[in-house]
Amino acid sequence: MSEMNETENIHKPRLTMHFKVEEEDFIIAGEAASKTKKALQQLGLKQEIVKNIAIIVYEAAMNIVIHANYGEVQVIIVPAYVTVIAQDKGGGIPDVDLAMQEGYSTAPIEAQEMGFGAGMGLPNMKKCSDIMHIETQVGVGTTLKATIYLHQSDAKQVETGAMYV
């Protein structure tokens, strides 16, 4: 295989998961995180990486449930990295810097009664990812992309393990 082909190969998705998320469907967020965790464990990735990605999926899905009308969370696994993309139609984030501050929350009381709305979601996702990017437009929606790089041993696991998931 030429060097060019190998480079292309490590960026080719081996496994993609989609989770549709509706407003106020609080159960879906935990389920998406749980399913993601199981799939990544089956691939044989390290516990800490699996946990970080599951946390990002949980927080991203919960943000859509609480703050948007509807959206989708995708988990794309390629040998070199895992990307979580959360896209929603909704109110958008008026001040991203403020939303990134730990403890700042605009979650309604119903969400807080269930234990959500601690104001830790976005900072938590940032801590768990290597790169996080937010594009948002007030009144339109938000797209969040978080990337987690895999160590070589984990990347090898993805190459060999994806076919069994």
């Binding site: 159960i27 935990g30 946390i55 830790m120 979601g121």
Partner: peptide
């Protein structure tokens, strides 16, 4: 929930008064 996810290390005992599905996830 988010504080559990942010601060709690692996293999830790979780103590809480929340009893919903989310806390189990």
């Amino acid at each position: 929930i988010s504080e559990m996810l942010a601060y709690a290390g692996s293999e830790t005992l979780l103590i809480t008064s929340l009893i919903n599905t989310h806390v189990i996830h």
